[in-house]
């Protein structure tokens, strides 16, 4: 069977354009965190750019970076995961329906509100007529895309696939999230290690990956296996152990576990269970860098791929005190409110 390698990565995040996890400085997350928009003029004509949704632009930028880095010109599939799609345009269109009582509407916002706009716009830009898919399964939307690509590279006659995860912040959606306590409010203490307040520090971003069956000089890591599911059939411990055993690994042979902790006191107990199982293992976190959103776990994969390739473990990722001796196998664990679970297993090449 063929393998699935990460050969290129592109990212737009709340950190400065070109940010690296090995940089000294990071922007600290607030209760709400907007992505730092790069310059799009080299990629998108200004007239187009003005009309384009933020999610589309961030994705085009990140996709382009990933493809360029991997020297990939002809992806045989474009697969995108997004929690809410271009939600800003959904809001715009809904606002217009309500304010103008269903009159004088224009189609642009409606068109962009469709969940598959990002994957479609990338296909249009690349003139790529290949397989094109969009997953919208909440917090494992990105892992759904990764799974699809993984399965196709392993089993089907495909060599190169572009995948990504993207989500936007939109003002009214944010205020609705505030009403139900899903997000942090202004002034809420944000503590990832000992969360005391409910809600997540909401953010946005786009993270894209060029995946291939071919290992190159630029390869970051191999995606060895992944599991996407809505709920545990057995308990957490035995499910994780079985997943590792299937891949000839065990709790002790995981060099770093990357946790999708999101500073939400309500959600912390799940991660605590995982921590207990991996007490001796170096534990990493990343949402204090990316902020939290449905597809933030794609930023987590980027971080994991970077540390495995560089074989260095920046202090700022440390969730516990343990220091890895080597970084060969990384397990990523993510969920949202006890559903949309994912495990992703990466190995050094």
């Amino acid at each position: 069977m063929k393998n699935c390698y990460i050969n290129g990565i592109g990212s737009v995040s709340i950190q400065a354009t070109g940010f690296s996890i090995f940089d000294a400085e990071i922007t600290t997350v607030q209760n709400v965190n907007k992505a730092q928009q790069p310059s799009y003029k080299e990629l998108i004509a200004p007239a187009m750019s003005r009309r384009m949704a933020k999610g589309v632009k961030m994705s085009i930028y990140a996709a382009n970076k990933a493809l360029f880095e991997a020297k990939m010109v002809d992806p045989q599939a474009i697969i995108v995961g997004t929690g809410l799609g271009c939600i800003e345009d959904s809001e715009k269109f809904l606002d217009a329906i309500i304010e103008n009582e269903e009159q004088f509407l224009t189609p642009t916002a409606f068109i962009q509100s469709t969940h598959n706009t990002v994957a479609a716009q990338i296909a249009l830009l690349l003139q790529c007529k290949a397989y094109n898919f969009t997953y919208v399964n909440g917090a494992n939307s990105f892992e759904n895309a990764l799974f699809d690509a993984f399965m196709q590279l392993k089993h089907l006659d495909k060599e190169n696939i572009l995948i990504g995860g993207v989500d936007e912040i939109a003002p009214y959606t944010f205020s609705m999230f505030e009403m139900v306590g899903k997000v942090k409010r202004v002034g809420d203490n944000i503590n990832f290690k000992k969360p005391e307040t409910n809600g997540i520090p909401l953010a946005e971003g786009a993270n894209f990956f060029a995946l291939s069956v071919k290992k190159t000089a630029n390869t970051y890591a191999e995606v060895v296996d992944l599991l996407v599911f809505n709920d545990f059939k057995d308990d957490e411990t035995s499910t994780i152990k079985a997943f590792l055993e299937k891949n000839n690994l065990s709790v002790n042979t995981i060099d770093v576990i990357v946790l999708g902790v999101n500073a939400d006191a309500v959600q912390q107990p799940f991660y605590h269970k995982i921590q207990v199982l991996f007490t001796e293992t170096p534990q990493a976190y990343y949402q204090h860098i990316s902020g939290s959103y449905d597809t933030a776990s794609a930023f987590g994969l980027k971080v994991a791929a970077e540390i495995i390739r560089s074989q260095s473990y920046p202090e700022k990722l440390k969730y516990n005190e343990a220091q890895p001796e080597k970084i060969e196998n990384i397990l990523l664990v993510n969920q949202n409110n006890l559903t949309d679970f994912s495990f992703v297993l990466l190995s050094k090449c």
């Binding site: 469709t114 598959n116 997953y135 919208v136 909440g138 759904n144 996407v228 599911f229 809505n230 059939k233």
Partner: peptide, 20 residues
Amino acid sequence: SNKIADYLGLKGFVSTISTA
């Protein structure tokens, strides 16, 4: 999809696709 899965008592791979 999660609601439908819960209604069926299904625990496993759950996915949602939106390609218009």
